[in-house]
């Protein structure tokens, strides 16, 4: 799994490529969290499990990333490990992280939301690819 940031005039985007869908969703989560803080600063003290169901993979990606942002914004939780499994537009994930502490985690960017703009989970060669634009 690999990810890189992509240029967007007002906001920030990422492009993620992976061998499997599970890895793609894991990579997108890691890419987003690494825009917010350094992943290395997050400790593994809390475990959470979530499952989400959508009508298609794009919607699932939108819901997945915004769920992680909701957990950060409302519950004050930030995660660094995502053990993801996907089948039939359902995702379930075990996530490991900790309570978010602004002083220690040193925020790089506040992300308001993952958008649908240009969002597309696509087959690429033998694997998968997605681009996501975030509102910052």
């Amino acid at each position: 799994m690999e990810f890189r940031t992509i240029e967007h005039t007002a906001d920030i985007g990422v492009e993620v490529t992976a061998d499997s869908l599970g890895e793609l969703f894991r990579g997108a989560a890691l890419a987003m969290v690494s825009l917010i803080v350094d992943l290395g600063k997050i400790e593994g003290k809390i475990e959470r499990e979530i499952s989400l169901k959508a009508d298609d993979l794009d919607e699932l990606m939108f819901m997945w990333l915004n769920e992680i942002l909701y957990l950060l914004s409302a519950k004050g939780l930030i995660f660094k490990e995502f053990d993801v499994s996907i089948s039939d537009c359902c995702i379930s994930s075990k996530m490991i992280g900790e309570k978010f502490t602004p002083e220690r985690h040193k925020v790089k960017e506040e992300i308001k939301a993952a958008t649908y703009h240009e969002l597309g989970v696509e087959r690429r060669n033998e694997g998968w690819m997605v681009r996501v634009i975030f509102d910052v």
Binding site: H8, T9, A10, D11, T115, Y116, H117, E118, I133, D135
Partner: peptide, 9 residues
């Protein structure tokens, strides 16, 4: 005007 998401900014 510049590139946004959905509508342009």
């Amino acid at each position: 005007i510049h590139w946004g998401y959905g509508f342009p900014i």
